[in-house]
Structure formats: C-alpha cells, structure tokens
C-alpha cells in the first residue's frame, strides 16, 4: 500500500493520523454552524493541550502557566493589530516569540525543581502575568480588556477559522513529531526519565529543558493569537489560570506522553462535560468525571488504549517496555 507523501509521512504516524482525521472530520463539522464554532474553540484548547504535552509529557516540566503564555500571545496580537495596525500573520511571530523568550528565561530558574514545585512556580508566574495584564490599563485595557480585534486577513468566517485552527494543529503535530524523532527529542526523553543518565550522556540538561519549555510556550502563544483574532475580544478572564489548569487536565486525561494524547483528551473531556447537566452542579460532574477517568486510565486514554493493544498482541506480556517517544509520564520520585 502506498500513498503520495508516504516518504515524508510514513515514519510520522501521528501526523498522518491527525491529518487524515482532520481531512475527514472537517467537511462534516463545517456543515453545522455550532460545530464549526466549537471546532475553533476546541482547536485553541487542543493547541494549549499540545503545549502542555511538549512541556510536561516530553520535557517533564509540569506547567500551570500555559494560559498566561496564551494571554501574552493574544494580547500581543491584539495590541499590534489594533494599536499599531500590523498586517495579519506578522503578529503571529511576536505572539510566539514573546512567551517563548519569557519561558526560556523562567525555565532556567525552575528546571532543577521537582514537578510539583515547578507546577507551583509556573502557577505563581501565571498569576503575576495575569496581575500585570490587569494593571497595564493603557496597553491592555486593564480589567475590561480589548474589544474589536480584527480578523486574520481574509479569514473572517467561523469555517475559515476552523480550517486555520486545525491546520495549525496538524502543522504543530508534524513539527512536534519531527522534534521527537530528532536527537533533541531523544535527549528530552532520556532526561525526563533519568537526569543523571542524561548528564552522563553529555546533555546540557537545563538548556534542553528550557528549550522544550520555550517551544511549548510558543505553541501556547499561537493558541492565544488564534483565540484573540477569532473571539475578537480579550480580557484577563479570557485566558486565565483556569484555562491553564484545564489544559493540563486535558493533556493528562488524553495521555500527556503521547503526541496526540492532549488532542484526544481535549475532544473527549469537552464533549463529556457538554453532555452533562450544567448549572450549579456543573463542577460536581466535572470533578467526578475527572476522578473516574483518572481511575480508569491513569496514563491517559491513549495509554489505556496502548495497554489494551499490547495485551491483545501478547496476552501474557507483563507491563510493556517503554517505547522512546510513546512512553507515558511515569512517576518521578
């Protein structure tokens, strides 16, 4: 069996899967306006989830500041286009570069911490960014926020944004998968499992982790850019700590260590919470669903599926060997 582009996509199964899924699903989604709208928002969340996947699943940095990085990206886009009249797409570069630079600087300080301490440090960082945004009235519109952010060039329909969002996801997955197949990706995997070993291999651990975190922040910034242009309004509540936490949850639920895990988690969890009765008890169902999923699939949905697949293939196999770029995040002592 062969298909065009196999030479490039053959060794990139995740990219192939997501590209095919998007190509098949998008035409269906675009037939219903409400699905189209949801597809854009879910695209933003899925990008944020992917950014958590890169940072936590690969570089081992448990991050709770992705919402803040997205906010920086979003505000950069909003300010550059509304105040300074930047052309579309030019602001995307800034929206990705700014959070990446910040993440790189911060990561150099926090990489030696344990995951939970890192989580706290990034949470504090996110809160500081949120407070700065709220108080920079002249630049960010303060608590009220910025309205009237223009659309991205010719793209001004929800369908256009849905294509843009999922196109960005396919590209991100492609780059992500390439990264993981490179020497850097292999090094990241080594250091996540065993830092001493990584050092012994001559890996500059802090630099590599920081680079991983910076890439993750850049993806989050791109998500913020998309959000700002699509919703056209941005306030401090738009991309706040709650978004950071839910991005983390969705990544873990889907399987943070798997490239497509965060996307699966986002689609599944959002779908699930939408089916449940809302209002006052919304949080109850949300929490209960989270606990049940964690009990049922503690390495994420994809981890559960991979485990089942392994068992089907070799019924007697004990816990499977960990494939380099597919291994889920296991415990760090």
């Amino acid at each position: 069996m062969s298909f065009p582009g196999q030479r490039y996509l053959g060794p990139r199964p995740n990219t192939l899967i997501i590209a095919v899924c998007v190509l098949v699903a998008l035409p269906v989604v675009l037939t219903r306006p409400v699905w189209t709208d949801s597809a854009v928002v879910l695209g933003v969340y899925a990008l944020l989830g992917l950014s958590v996947g890169i940072s936590y699943g690969q570089a081992g940095i448990l991050t709770m500041s992705q919402g803040a990085f997205a906010a920086i990206g979003g505000y950069a886009a909003a300010i550059l286009t509304t105040r300074f009249g930047w052309p579309p797409y030019a602001d995307l570069l800034v929206a990705m570069a700014l959070p990446a630079a910040l993440a790189y600087g911060v990561a150099r300080l926090v990489t030696r911490l344990s995951p939970l301490a890192t989580a706290l440090a990034t949470l504090a960082l996110g809160s500081v960014i949120e407070i700065l945004i709220r108080n920079a009235d002249a630049l960010t519109g303060g608590y009220i926020g910025l309205a009237g952010i223009p659309s991205v060039g010719a793209i001004n329909t929800p369908a256009g944004y849905a294509c843009l969002a999922w196109g960005m996801i396919v590209v991100t997955v492609f780059l992500y998968e390439n990264l993981m197949c490179s020497a850097y990706g292999r090094a990241l995997n080594v250091l996540r499992v065993d830092q001493a070993r990584a050092r012994a291999d001559g890996i500059d651990v802090p630099a590599l982790m920081s680079a991983g975190f910076a890439v993750s922040a850049a993806v989050a910034g791109a998500a913020g850019w998309l959000y700002a242009h699509y919703i056209s309004f941005l306030s401090p509540e738009s991309l706040d700590t709650h978004i950071s936490i839910s991005a983390l949850l969705m990544a873990v639920i889907g399987g943070a260590g798997y490239i497509l895990g965060p996307i699966v988690g986002t689609l599944l969890f959002d779908g699930l919470t939408r089916l449940m009765p809302a209002a006052e008890l919304q949080g109850f169902f949300y929490g209960a669903a989270l606990i049940i999923i964690l009990l049922a699939a503690r390495t994420g949905i994809l981890g559960l599926l991979a485990g089942l697949a392994r068992r089907l293939r070799r019924p007697d196999a004990t816990p499977a060997p960990r494939a380099a770029n597919l291994s889920p995040q296991e415990s760090l002592p």
Binding site: L116, G283, G287, L290, L294, L332
Partner: peptide, 18 residues
C-alpha cells in the same frame, strides 16, 4: 504517579465546591 493523586484531589475539590 503523585501528579495523578494531585489531579484527582483537584477533581474532588471542584466537585465539593460545586
């Protein structure tokens, strides 16, 4: 995985507040 314990407790916290 301690992170999973922490996330489960986050779920419980959300459910209780709700």
């Amino acid at each position: 995985d301690h992170i999973i314990y922490a996330l489960a407790s986050f779920g419980l916290a959300t459910a209780l507040a709700s």
